[in-house]
Each structure stands twice: as structure tokens, then as C-alpha cells.
Nucleic acid binder design. Sequence first.
DNA 1: GATGAATGAGCGTTCATTCAT
DNA 2: CATGAATGAACGCTCATTCAT
Lengths: 191, 191, 191, 191
Amino acid sequence: MSKPDKREEIVRAALEMIAEHGFHGAPMAMIAERAGVGAGTIYRYFENKDVMITELYQNVEDRSYPLIQQGYMPEKPIRERFLHLCTALLHYFIENPLDFRFLEQFFNSPYGVEHRRDKLMGNKGGCDVFRELFEDGISQQVMKDLPLVILFDLAFGPILAVARDHILGFIALDEVLITWTVEACWDGVRR
Amino acid sequence: MSKPDKREEIVRAALEMIAEHGFHGAPMAMIAERAGVGAGTIYRYFENKDVMITELYQNVEDRSYPLIQQGYMPEKPIRERFLHLCTALLHYFIENPLDFRFLEQFFNSPYGVEHRRDKLMGNKGGCDVFRELFEDGISQQVMKDLPLVILFDLAFGPILAVARDHILGFIALDEVLITWTVEACWDGVRR
Amino acid sequence: MSKPDKREEIVRAALEMIAEHGFHGAPMAMIAERAGVGAGTIYRYFENKDVMITELYQNVEDRSYPLIQQGYMPEKPIRERFLHLCTALLHYFIENPLDFRFLEQFFNSPYGVEHRRDKLMGNKGGCDVFRELFEDGISQQVMKDLPLVILFDLAFGPILAVARDHILGFIALDEVLITWTVEACWDGVRR
Amino acid sequence: MSKPDKREEIVRAALEMIAEHGFHGAPMAMIAERAGVGAGTIYRYFENKDVMITELYQNVEDRSYPLIQQGYMPEKPIRERFLHLCTALLHYFIENPLDFRFLEQFFNSPYGVEHRRDKLMGNKGGCDVFRELFEDGISQQVMKDLPLVILFDLAFGPILAVARDHILGFIALDEVLITWTVEACWDGVRR
DNA sequence: GATGAATGAGCGTTCATTCAT
DNA sequence: CATGAATGAACGCTCATTCAT
């Protein structure tokens, strides 16, 4: 097994274990075992558990952003762009439940809170498509004139909740339900 | 200090510590110290930490439901009832950030997931007002004809997200913003 | 076994293990086992290993100073006082080889170096009898006019070396040898 | 880089790291990095860390003995020879603080104790000049009639202590102080 | 009933050593 | 030969839980 393979195995295993059991329910030793490596090996690739988690998040971001933006056309009307992005996001979550569960753990921890704080303060980070879309939506008077943060919550709050319920087995989303859900989100943010 | 007092002190202390530091950042010894009791004493009132957390949740539920339903009038039109409940809920969260943070911890853990599963399967539990309201809303064709779970997510997803952002200091909610937010939620669920 | 007993057992065990195997050869678990307590118990009495070692040193100091100064008469002539203190010191080491070995470990580690630095900078600490004696010796022109530190080294360098060699079994000190050794030290510092 | 070069690099690096951070503060990986070789390479030249340390000691001995004996004239009077050797020793320590710190680490560890035991039992080893000098001194009745070991301690105890204090910055030795110190040592051993 | 000292399994992390390349 | 990625035993330390007082 070559070097990049090993790192990948660790990332996969860590994502799985953390998604399934949370940060505190996923000891390094367990992650190592699942990855099929020695416990010490993890520390060749990640300085410590905290750093590993942060890089795991980066990994998820790097994989998800392109997927979500695939086929996104910034010149289309706001509504269409909104529906596209939210649908893509929901699909991504459904098709990558491990990523979703990991993200939930992440954002529900000090790591994630700090991350959001940084994102909201500085304009850095990759969710700029969303920010742009919502700023456009407000300035074109297509969306409600509310603080950006609230608009985000109106749109993503339901998406996340629905994804969670699907992954936990409380509902079984299909294309029709997804469409309706996303359109309901649009109803929430549009004027 | 009499027996019920002691239990109350423990509950208060545990809620505080868990809200502030999470389940894993709140050792029993620390909770005991904050409660002003011996570490062993906690185990007279709660079989173990897991049980304590579950009962802590019950405690929050018991205190919050009456508050949220205060002034609720089931004979009023759906929209008004919806706005009343959501506003009350959001107010409750803002005024009881400790409860809110605890609930987030709870629902983002195996405890919470199991709890929701039980709630959704059997019809037990206290959120029947909500269930009734939404079922009424659907049958009166005032709300979208979607699975109850999704309707819940459309309504509460944004409420929870907005409450979190307020408590974390990302926005500063006032009465006007609360009203607009809740009305946006209504836009999300109404036909 | 009552509380003070337990602390004492830990102190004794730690002193023994560290004297025998050095700081790094004396894991907390081993010390705990030797003390007949659980590993976690040590941390009820000492914040961590570093703190434990520092307090161990204090413990040795507190026990040794009175013993060494027993019968010391500051009004006697310099030579007599010197012989008294050095003899007492050497006796103390020989009769408390564990203390001696611990002190060697201590002074040969960052802990000890820092400790000496503090002692030499500020005038705090308990070796003031020695300092006084040597300052008297210099000002009365009975001892060589050298920096205090060097005078200390001339006196204690041999004492420590001889104690070590006795404890390691390279020589067998008796009263006669002790007397001669201490008098040789006096020859080293006197004018 | 040829084979002997590599070994030399490792020796130099190990000496430096151990002198600066102690045996336990100098991991093999760190030594390898400092030496500019792979971690595994060290094990081509030294069976394991213990062996490496022992050979490191040999290396220091081999380099120091010639230096110390440079200009030593066995036909001169005892006193002169003593002063010569002790001065040379002290100079050597001051000019090679890394060696000195390493030697302190070494003699304060099981390695060093065993080494001295071997030296004192069998007559092997390189400090024969000292032994000869002291035996001469005793038989010529110029030195005190004490066991050799004690005579060594009287002479070298202060030398080592003074060197340590200089290297740690507690005093600043110059030629004058060195002379006085060495002469004080002579006072300690002479009749 | 209340206590808190005691416990020890389990955690994150380090590092001497090995061995496939 | 030389490498350095991989290993896993061992470390210092934490904390849910127990139980003698």
C-alpha cells in the first residue's frame, strides 16, 4: 500500500467513525484499526486529533464544493440558481451521508463554531456562490430584505433538517419530495 | 438542603455545564462541585450519566412546553396558531440559551436521535400541539401537502438555525427580525 | 489506610523509584503500584508528574535541613562550624541514600538547574547557614577570597562525589574516612 | 558522503542533541534529522540507542584524553603534574561544553555508573595518567594517604562543579579564577 | 442519606526499532 | 547500503463510577 493510499484510508476511516460515533466516540486507536494501520501511523499524516478533524473538514469541503456547483449557471435567474444549488446540496448530502454526519458533528463543535465565525467575519472561504446569490437576490428585490445570515438559515435550515431525517431513516426522500422541499425553501426566502 | 433541592441543584448545574462545555467537557465531578454536592451524591438521583442526560432532557421539555403553549388558542386560524407557536419557541430559545445549547447537544447525540425515533414511531411525547396544528394545516389545505416530518423541518429548521446564530452572536435578533423570520417560516410551509 | 498515609506512601514510592531508575525510568504507573494505590490516585495529591517531583524535592529539603543543622553552633569558630556542617551533610547522605540519589537526579535535570538559578539570584531558600558561614569565612580572612559559588563547589563537590561513591559501593566510608574527607575539604577552602 | 563521514555526522548530531536535551529529550529521529541521514541509518552504525550512547562516550574519551595530556610531563614534580592535568581538564570542559554536558548526562545514568564500576574494578580504561599521578603522590607522601577514590573525588569533585557552574552561567571563569580553583584542589589533596 | 477518596480502563500521543523499497 | 514510513508498546493523564465512612 503506497503512501497516499494510507492517508486516504485514514481519512476514510476517520470520517466513518466520527460520522457514526462523534468525535469523542471515535478514539484514534479505533480509527487506526478501521483504517488498517498502526495507531502511531495517523500521526505521520496529522499532527494531532484536532488538526486531523480540521483537515477532514477541508477534505469534505474540497470534495463537495465542485459537486454542488456542477452545472451552476450564474447568468440564470435567481430562482433557478437557488433551486439548482439547494437541490445539488440536498443530493450531495443524501449521496454522501458520511460527509453529512461528519459535517453535523463538525459544526456542532467548537471547531465548527470557530470556522463559521471566521467565515462570517472575513469573506474568505468557498461558500461565496451562496453569498453572491443571496446578495443578488436581495439587491434585485427577488428575495426578502433580511440579514444574510437569516436568509441562509431560512434556506439551509430546512435542507439540513430534511437531509438528517432522510439519513436517519425518518423519511425516504425521492426526486419529487426533494423538488417540493427545495421549492418550499424558495418560498421561505423569496419576496 | 432537602432532597428535592439537591436534585434540582444537580439538574441546574448539569444543564449549565453541559450547555457551556458539551457532554464530554462536563465531568461528573465538575457538575457535582457546581451543584455544591459530593460526586457520589449525583448517583443517588441518577443511575448514571446517560440516564442523567435523558432526564435532563425531560426536565427541559417539561419546563419549555407550558411556556411555549402559553396563550395558545387552538380555535384560532392555522396561520395565527403557527405564528404564535414559532414566535414563542424562538423567544424561549433566546431567553433560555442554556436550554437551547443543551438541546442542541442532546439532539446531536445518540440520545437525541433515539428520542426522536421513539417520538416519530409511537405518538407519545409532548409536541402534539405541533403535530395537531400541522395535521390541521394539511387537511384544511392551508399548508403544503408534504409529509409531516418535512413540514416540521421547514418550520423548525430555520427557527433553530436562527436561534443558534443569535446565541452564538452572529446576529442580534429583535422583535422585528423575529416576526419577519417566523413569517418567512410560514411562507415555507403554507400553500 | 487514611489520607495522609496514602500521600506518604506515594512520596516514599516515588522517591524510591526515581532514586533507583531516574525520572524517566519511573513511570507513574510503576510508582502507583509500588505505593499500593491506583494510578489515578497520585493525581489527587499532585497536579502532575512535574509538580510531584518539585514537591518531592521540597519534602527532602524539609527533612534534611533540620537534620544537618542539628547541634550547629553559629558562635563557634569558622573551621569548627564548617567541619560540623560538612560532616552532618555527609552523614545525612549516607544514612539517606534514597534522598541522595533523588537529589542527584533532581539537580541534574532542568528542575534542579532552575532551582539553583533561583536560589543564587534571589537570596531565598534554606542553605543560608552555608552562605553565612562562607561569607563569614571570607570576611574573617579564614577562607580563600574566591566567589561564593566556587567556594561552595570546593566544599560540596568532594562531599557529593564521596557520598555517591559510597552509596554506589565504590568505597566504604567509616567515621575516620569521613573525618579525613571533610578535613580535606576544609584544606580546599581555607587560606 | 562516505561511510565514515556518515558515522561522524551521527556522532556529532547525537552528542549535540543529548548535551542540549538529555537522553530522553533526544529521539533517534531527531538525531537522524540533525545528522542529515535517515532514521534507519543510525542502526547500521549502532545496534541500538544504548550502544550508541556508550560509543558516544568512548568517542568523547578518545578525543579528550590526548587534549588533556598534551604537554604533560611525567617526570615533573607531583604538584606541577597535578596542576597541569586539572587545568587542562577544566579548560577542556570550558571549551567543549557539549562534551561536558554529555559526560554529565552519561555519568548520571546507569550507563555511567556501570562504566565507573568497570573502571574501578578492572584496571582498564584511559584515566591511568591520573591513577599513576595519584599513586605516585601517595607513595611519595606528597598527597594525603587516602583511598584513591576519595582522592579522585577531592580533586575532580570541585573541577566538575566549577565547570558546570561556568557552563550554566552561574560564574564566569577566567584564567585567574581557573588557577586559583585548581590550586585550591591541590590544597585539598596535598598533605 | 451524603460524601469524596479511590479506582482503573481508556484516552491522545511519543518514539525506539524494523523492514520493504 | 540507505531510507523513512510504519509500527505498537508504553507513557502521562482523565473521569465515570464505587464504596467505606
